[in-house]
Amino acid sequence: MPAVSFQNVSKNYATPRGELQALKGVSFDIQAGEFFGLLGPNGAGKTTLISILAGLSRASGGHVRVHGHDVVSDFAAARRQLGVVPQELVFDPFFNVRETLRIQSGYFGIKGNDAWIDELLEGLGLADKAGANMRQLSGGMKRRVLVAQALVHKPPVIVLDEPTAGVDVELRQTLWQFVSQLNKTQGSTVLLTTHYLEEAEALCGRIAMLKKGEVVALEKTSDLLSRASSNVLRFKTDHNLPADLAAVARVTGRVVQLPAHNAAEVERILARVREAGVAVDDIEIRKADLEDVFLDVMSGASATTAPMAPMPPTEEVAP
Rank of each mutant, 00 (worst) to 15 (best):
I103N: 13
E162G: 04
G61Q: 10
R206F: 00
F94I: 12
K46I: 01
F28D: 01
M134V: 14
S60T: 14
L39Y: 03
V157G: 05
Q181Y: 07
W176N: 02
G205H: 03
I50W: 04
V157T: 01
M308N: 11
P242G: 03
M1A: 05
V64G: 04
F91A: 08
L295H: 00
V147E: 09
S302K: 00
S229G: 12
V278E: 04
S10E: 10
M298L: 07
A318E: 15
R234H: 05
T189M: 00
Q81M: 14
L39C: 07
G83S: 03
D118H: 03
T193L: 05
L218K: 05
V167F: 03
E316M: 08
H239F: 11
G187S: 02
L160Y: 01
Q177F: 03
G68M: 01
V248H: 09
L49C: 14
E119F: 06
D74Y: 15
G106A: 13
M308K: 15
F95R: 08
S51N: 15
V216T: 02
L191M: 06
A22E: 09
V293E: 06
A309S: 14
D29F: 06
K111E: 12
A150M: 04
A318R: 15
F36C: 04
A279N: 14
A150Q: 01
T314H: 06
T100R: 00
K220R: 06
I285K: 06
P259T: 07
A318K: 08
